[in-house]
Simulated scan of single mutants.
Amino acid sequence: MKISTVALAAVATAGSGALGFEKYAISGSPAAAALTSVVANVVVQQTQGNGVVVCTGAFISPTVLLTSAKCVADPVSNKALASASVMVGQGSADSALAAASTNGAIDTQKLSAKGYFAPQSVFVHPGYNSIAFTDNVAVLVLAQPLANATSAKLIVTPSAATGASYTALGISLSVSAPSGNTPPRLEQLSLKVGSNSTCTGVWAPYAQLTNSLCLVPAKTSSNVCSSDAMLVKTAADNSVGLAGLLNIVAVKGEVPTAQCTTSGVVDFFTTFANYVSWLTQITPLKQSDFVSSAKYNYDSTGDQDLSSASQSASDSEDDAENSSLTHVESTHTSAAAGLKAAASLALLVSALAGSLI
């Protein structure tokens, strides 16, 4: 068995005339209103052959959108695509259907009429490696805010405690209907942090990553599929925290996997503790724009905010945490360190690939 690539949310091929969305979630539910406003559709012109990819991104400021690097990077060079190859907008996933034309190219005129526009800048983390699955994070900076967008707070260090609850968010199709016959929609589903033994048993390099969170299904009937996804937390006041971006979907013996319902499927999300310095260098964000894990409740009862007393305590913790972010960054976030990690993990993945072929 050869190692395959992880598919994005949707792909349009030459002559299709419409996007063929892949299923994203099993037994998900329509996304809550508080979540839909922080998410944008990212429409990308593919560089390898004709076609259009549509994936999701999340706003962490009115003009800063986070998405996965694999969404906006050239698949060969791992470098950021030109901003002219990307358009950003909001609304139902159906609106992204206008991105595909009969020749498999982005129809900028149709998208512009729906409020889409190209970002000012596209940044892919310099340590991103599509083979080693490292530093899978990218930033789109917009020249102007989208009319209906709201911003999520970026959670610097989300809880990694076994069993901690999260919500995954992304584009979905009903799995009972043929692709293209059911309108795609933004869905949410529950995930929880897996045990270290479960996660490293599926993908051994997980133990070496300082910027990854391992999630397993909260219910056996639902899970992230081969797609892209946001990992979020919602507080009692409906404010949203962004905890991670989907990196890979894996099952033991196949990393990544195209499976969704097979027992043992694990989702690895990129988290942000290692990227605060990078984000503040390339965007208008400041360290005070980030929050700690204590802002949210991670127990299995769902996404509820902490009590007022706990919230005040967490605010104090934020001050202490923000003062230590520079130290965290200095030990983990240089481009050289990211590339070194990518190289070492590439060897591990290559070895795994060799054993599976």
Rank of each mutant, 00 (worst) to 15 (best):
Q45K: 10
Q45G: 12
Y24T: 11
V53M: 11
V53P: 00
V39Q: 06
A34M: 09
G28D: 06
A32L: 14
N50E: 13
G51C: 06
V53W: 02
V44G: 01
Q46S: 15
G49K: 08
V42E: 00
G51D: 05
T36W: 01
V39P: 01
P30D: 08
P30W: 09
S29F: 14
G51N: 05
P30S: 14
V52F: 00
V38Y: 07
V38T: 11
N50L: 12
G49D: 05
V44M: 04
A31Y: 05
A33E: 11
G57C: 03
L35H: 03
A32Y: 10
A34V: 09
V52S: 00
T36L: 03
A33V: 06
T47A: 14
T56F: 07
A34I: 07
Q48P: 02
A31F: 04
G51W: 01
P30Q: 12
G57Q: 06
Q48W: 08
C55R: 03
Y24I: 13
A34L: 09
A31T: 05
F59D: 01
V53C: 11
V54S: 01
V39T: 09
T36K: 13
S29H: 14
A58W: 01
C55N: 12
V42F: 05
G57L: 02
S37V: 14
T47K: 12
N41H: 10
P30G: 14
V42D: 00
T36D: 07
N41Y: 04
A25D: 06
A40I: 03
T47N: 12
V53A: 10
V53K: 02
I60W: 01
V39D: 02
A25P: 06
I60D: 03
T36M: 03
Q48K: 15
Q45A: 11
A33Y: 07
A58C: 08
N50Y: 11
G28P: 06
A33N: 08
N50K: 14
Q48C: 10
T47S: 15
A58S: 11
V43F: 13
V39K: 03
V53F: 11
V38P: 00
G49Q: 10
V53R: 04
A40R: 00
G28Y: 03
V44C: 09
T36H: 04
Q46L: 11
A40L: 02
A40P: 03
L35I: 07
T36E: 09
F59N: 01
G51S: 09
S29C: 11
Q45H: 12
S37P: 09
T56S: 14
Q48H: 13
T47V: 15
V54A: 08
Y24A: 15
V43H: 02
S29T: 15
V38S: 05
L35E: 00
A32Q: 12
A32I: 04
I60E: 01
V42Q: 05
G49F: 08
Y24E: 11
Y24H: 13
Q45S: 13
V42S: 02
G57A: 10
L35C: 08
A31E: 02
V52L: 06
F59V: 04
T47E: 15
